[in-house]
Amino acid sequence: MTANLLAGVDAVIFDFDGVVIDSEPISLGELGVTLSQFGLEMSWPELVTSFMGHSDIAIQAYIEEKIGKPTGDLFPDAWRKRVREGFAKSLPVVDGIPALFERLDRDGIPHCLATGSSQARVAFALEQIGETERFADTAFSAEQVKNGKPAPDLFLFAADQLGVDPARSMVIEDGLAGVAGSKAAGIGLIVGFVGASHLNDDALRKAHAENLREAGATHIIESISDLL
């Protein structure tokens, strides 16, 4: 039963995009526009599989390898600007997240963010959803470590900052890179989440769930409420 998983953990480490905020339609949608500007066309499932959870640096390296030259202002600067504008218009919180935060507060379970997004973008998004204070000192970005996801660095850093054993921690992730990084970090419970709106049809959701399992997820959930 997934509802009992929290009873055995000392901390919860959240991915941000696609787990706390339902932002991937904006972020990946604008990334698709950017890739088209470089002559690189990708389907929505390809965008989800290839880039979800990866840092801006990793995405930039991918683009530059494909086009054989620097990305210039188109990435990440212009992309970040469009994503920020999208966040300012509408940035939904994933269903079940407020209730899960309340549960963690009530049970005294420390929690943090571990995201491939830039610190500036995370700060802006947290302000938009009214959670700046909650993660004032615990919003950890790939910018703070040598290697982003799928390396274990960010998860090890997050656990160290919280003062917990990775083996007694839970990670909630929707990205293959994040699940792989969690496994490499020795995280005890790795929950793959497939309930956000970017997984917008049953076939994509089922395929992504299987990919998350293969990457190392110990549990798969379609609703954050499954953890309550």
Rank of each mutant, 00 (worst) to 15 (best):
G68S: 12
F155N: 02
C112I: 07
M170W: 06
A185L: 08
L5F: 06
A177V: 13
L204H: 03
A7K: 14
A209H: 06
F87H: 11
V12C: 04
I63E: 02
K146E: 15
D95R: 08
E222P: 00
F155H: 04
V93M: 10
S43A: 14
L5G: 05
I109N: 03
Q128L: 13
V194W: 05
G116S: 05
A167T: 11
T2S: 13
D56L: 14
G116W: 06
A139P: 05
S223C: 11
D174F: 01
D73W: 00
P45N: 02
K81V: 11
P152K: 09
N4I: 11
A123H: 06
V9D: 03
P166A: 02
F101T: 05
A177E: 03
D105E: 15
K69G: 05
H111A: 10
T218M: 05
K89E: 15
F140C: 09
D73V: 10
I224E: 00
V93T: 11
L204A: 03
E41D: 15
R80N: 13
A203T: 15
E173Q: 11
I220K: 01
R106A: 15
L156F: 06
P152T: 12
T138M: 05
V93S: 00
L162R: 02
E127W: 01
A7Q: 15
D107V: 08
S223D: 14
D15N: 07
S197W: 06
V164D: 09
A58H: 11
R103T: 12
G181Y: 10
D160I: 02
Q161L: 07
A142P: 00
G53L: 08
R106N: 12
H208S: 10
A11V: 08
A158E: 09
V83I: 10
I187P: 04
E127M: 10
F14N: 07
N211D: 15
E133R: 13
F87D: 03
F75W: 01
D174E: 07
H198N: 11
E102L: 12
L212E: 07
R205F: 02
A185V: 10
F75K: 00
G181P: 01
R168T: 13
E24F: 03
K69P: 00
A125Y: 08
A142G: 14
H111G: 02
S90L: 14
P45W: 12
Y62G: 03
L156M: 09
A99V: 12
